[in-house]
Computed example of a mutant assay.
Amino acid sequence: MRRRSFIKFLLSTPLGRLISGLLFTGAAAGVLYLDLQKTDVRRSEGALKAILLPYPKLSGLVSVEEALANRRSIRDYTEEPLTLEELSQLLWAAYGVSETRYGLRTAPSAGAQYPLELYALVGTNGVKTDKGYLAPGIYHYDPHSHSITLLKQGDFREDLYYAALEQRWVLTAPVSLIFTAVYSRTVRVYGERGRVRYVPMDLGHAGQNVYLQATALGLGTVAVGAFNDEEVARILGLSERETPLYIMPVGRPASRYKLSEKELIDYIEKHRRR
């Protein structure tokens, strides 16, 4: 029996359904995964199961002004994982729903076409939950149900690291958010201007949201645009209509930047005297 046929048969049995259930419930040793082998779970029957994220919080301890002042591109992270709540908040801030009549998002989009898609590449022990750790793998974010779906199981950080021209922070971050674009959504309304002007603007808006939310949560991130498009598309399993645009590793900063009002005033005064 061929391997794929065997897996399909196994998942149809009671034992297979139990194993599939353990993948998401965390019943095995208090974790959310059983096998670290890289697999495309989209090819397995019944494997696409949404994980409902904690509800987004609409208030925090850090003001917009503080987040703007202390936002930096962070490339050095500790080994600590993110929490599921932090991942939830980052995904919502990046591209979640902030208006409930039409489902408008936290980031503006030309003509409300929303060409971007958002993925989370989670490393081994990269996201801590109440029951252990989120299964390592590639997840797709659904903003309307505020949930993620595991598309490919396994720790793909090393693959992404090589695709991103061996930028170390892509390898060491516990999670990388990856933005892609379906250009046709915007191009059908605005033509080629949508491709060269409006979609990049949409990406900038969403990327800055990630920066500011990460800062407010005490996390760090950096926008990575240097990578092999074809390799990243292969890792994510994208169709031809979808193009990768941004990789944003996220982790706990090894050192924190903090701007004081005095430093800012002194800087401004020095340049006023020139």
Rank of each mutant, 00 (worst) to 15 (best):
L15W: 06
G21Y: 12
F24W: 13
V189H: 05
V250N: 10
P54I: 04
G60Y: 07
Y246Q: 13
L236S: 06
V64G: 02
R252K: 15
V232K: 02
Y139K: 00
D40N: 01
H146E: 10
R43Q: 13
K128R: 07
Q89G: 11
V196M: 06
E240L: 11
L22Y: 04
A216C: 03
L219D: 01
A254P: 05
A223I: 03
I148P: 09
R234D: 07
A233V: 11
E66M: 01
P115Y: 09
E117Y: 15
N125D: 15
R4A: 13
A28V: 06
R42Y: 09
S260K: 14
I178Y: 04
G132L: 02
D159R: 15
A254Q: 11
A29I: 07
L121W: 15
E192H: 12
G123W: 09
Y141F: 12
D40L: 01
A69H: 00
R241Y: 14
I138G: 05
N125I: 09
V222K: 06
Y102P: 02
R17L: 07
G207M: 00
Y198L: 07
A233M: 10
E269R: 14
R4T: 10
K258W: 13
P14Q: 04
G21C: 09
G218W: 00
A67Y: 02
R252N: 12
R252F: 08
K128T: 01
T124P: 07
L219S: 03
Y77Q: 02
L259C: 11
Y139G: 01
G218D: 01
V127W: 02
R168F: 14
N209K: 10
L134G: 02
G154Y: 06
P108S: 04
Y190F: 12
P54W: 10
Y183T: 05
D155S: 08
S145A: 13
P174L: 10
I235L: 08
R2N: 15
K8D: 14
A47H: 13
E80N: 06
L82R: 00
A50V: 02
L177Q: 01
L118M: 07
K8M: 10
D130C: 03
P200W: 04
S59F: 12
V250C: 03
T221L: 01
A112D: 15
D229L: 14
G251E: 10
G21N: 12
L212H: 02
W92A: 05
R197K: 07
M201V: 04
P54D: 09
L245P: 12
D266G: 13
K131T: 12
G46N: 05
F179D: 14
D40F: 01
A254E: 14
T129V: 02
R157D: 06
R234Q: 08
L217I: 04
T78Q: 09
Q89S: 11
E166F: 05
E269N: 14
G132F: 03
T221H: 01
S88L: 11
Y162H: 15
Y141H: 11
V250Q: 04
P253A: 08
T149M: 09
Y139Q: 01
L84E: 00
G21M: 04
S184G: 12
S255W: 11
K152E: 05
